[in-house]
Design a protein around this nucleic acid. Structure first.
Lengths: 180, 180, 180, 180
DNA sequence: GATGAATGAGAATTCATTCAT
DNA sequence: TATGAATGAATTCTCATTCAT
């Protein structure tokens, strides 16, 4: 794999684990085994690297979402949708992405930096959700899906950052019940 | 007001606005008009200051929550509870606290630092919520209130950090509908 | 002497010897025996240090110029004036200041940075010169003194940066002859 | 034109505008549209490039000076000589060369690097000047021409780097008057 | 001739923290 | 309590230069 890609991947991991600010370029270099110079050869600065990281994550999320099979029953489709989300949340590889996501959205500095990319991603998720709710015949699907997305965010947040064990499965069951 | 308290207050504001990492001790000193020496006279180090900040916020939250009047009707009580939460969210003074809260919880370094205090606060909120659901006769009030808290978190997150305008009132209405 | 002043003095020497760009903060620190941190404690950044250096030099020049005795004969006064300038040029302590001066004025980046201070100093010198020429009864003393100052600059430049030996005394004699 | 020549030309422009130190090889590459590798293929290092730049400028100056027509009257010849110098100073294309010249002569590092080339050029100018003064019958033409060259330098310096408008024409008139 | 990935040395700057006063 | 000089470690970033292709 390309050194440039290796750097991005290492950055994804470290940014997620330690946060953007607490991750030094040196740490990334050590992980990949390249010089600091190379990072600045490929990326204008640290902020630029973060943007590229964010773009790559969005791509991963986008591509992973496309394998939903064609389910015709509206209710079954919603259930499948919710389940795919909860599954993604608990896959180790994806956990990291979620963590990074929150990290970056909540931090004022990084948030500003990525505002356009965040907006793009939010839209992406809202559209996918709205479609499902439309298919179920909701009249106020716009509001409902905005709430739905928010709630999923909250559950992910509590799951990923909970102090004690988080009963994801029970929550999922309850969540599905509420929406069907 | 005590210089010590002034420092804590300034820190709350700056930590919320810029994040813990991006806020330098110097910036706090400038805002309050004291020397760096004084900050380290009152607080062992920057981490210690953050803990004091977090403790003060928990106190504010705790005290603000106690003025709920005794409502006897279960459903009305839940509605009042939800409404008090949504109201708190939108009061400017409290917004800052929420922001700081997310900031600190999502950042691995600060999260570790405050783990015990976070746990205490989470418990506090969960108990208050569980009581309301118990009163409504929920059998699985433990799970439901955990989900409820998570969802509130998500809504707060989306409200506070949304790119576009967030329709808090419509979401509130929909949210109440779902739980009653 | 104050550490701050020591830093400025060391900077004057090194900036003159090596040029502003080629002088690292580390080099200054080594010369004075302080940490890099201290330099940035006293000066906002390297540019700021340069400004303080320039201000100090202007002060030195200003104070050194005031000891001209009251000579009544116009011609004698001009000669004394020219001689004081040529003397200053050749005193080792002052040589450094001249060198730094040229260095900083010719370099686009530093020039821009110091524009206001340079202007102030140029005015200072022009006024002193114009007074002397006025006293001699020149009608176009404005132009003549501007030319005079320019010529002095040129002579200093050639003297300070000449490849071979520069016959300062002969030039002085010739220069005086031309103006009297 | 040769890529090598294009690089030199771009370097002349950038070195003059920003100074040698502040001009990165990358900047030159961008301007010409070539890779960094190519620059180091043609020039041993950045210092070598500067030498080539200086050599090219000396050539330009040398060639431009040769078109002086044969004037027999000594005084007229001096006036023509002075006028050709003042004219050169104000032609935009030449201004850049003068600027670069000062830049490089005053900066200790570059000065050392180019010492032999500078000496050659200084000699060139001094000889041309001395010839004119000899033709006018000056006995001490060596000293006079050294002073003359210095003064011209000073006037150029003040003209090129003056804060306010510099009255080049009036100065020229006055300058000619003084020497005739 | 020509490219561009890769390096390594060094630069400015930031910042928590200590300590003498 | 209160100040502010002083430190040292870490961090981002720049840049000339090399080298395989």
């Amino acid at each position: 794999m390309d050194k440039r890609d290796q750097i991005i991947d290492a950055a994804i991991g470290l940014f997620a684990e330690q946060g953007f600010d607490k991750t030094s370029i040196s740490a990334i270099c050590e992980k990949v085994g390249v010089s600091k110079g190379l990072v600045f050869h490929h990326f204008k600065n640290k902020d630029d690297l973060l943007r590229e990281v964010f773009i790559k994550i969005t791509d991963i999320v986008r591509n992973s979402g496309e394998r939903s099979p064609a389910i015709t029953d509206p209710k079954a489709r919603l259930v499948a949708y919710i389940e795919s989300i909860f599954t993604a949340m608990s896959v180790p590889d994806y956990k990291v992405l979620y963590q990074l996501n929150f990290n970056v959205m909540v931090q004022p500095a990084t948030r500003t930096l990525l505002l356009d990319l965040i907006e793009e991603r939010v839209l992406l998720m809202r559209q996918a959700t709205e479609e499902v709710f439309n298919y179920m015949g909701y009249k106020n699907s716009a509001i409902v899906s905005q709430m739905f997305v928010a709630e999923i965010d909250g559950i992910a947040l509590n799951y990923l950052f909970s102090v004690e064990e988080f009963p994801l499965d029970e929550i999922k069951t309850e969540f599905i019940k509420k929406y069907t």
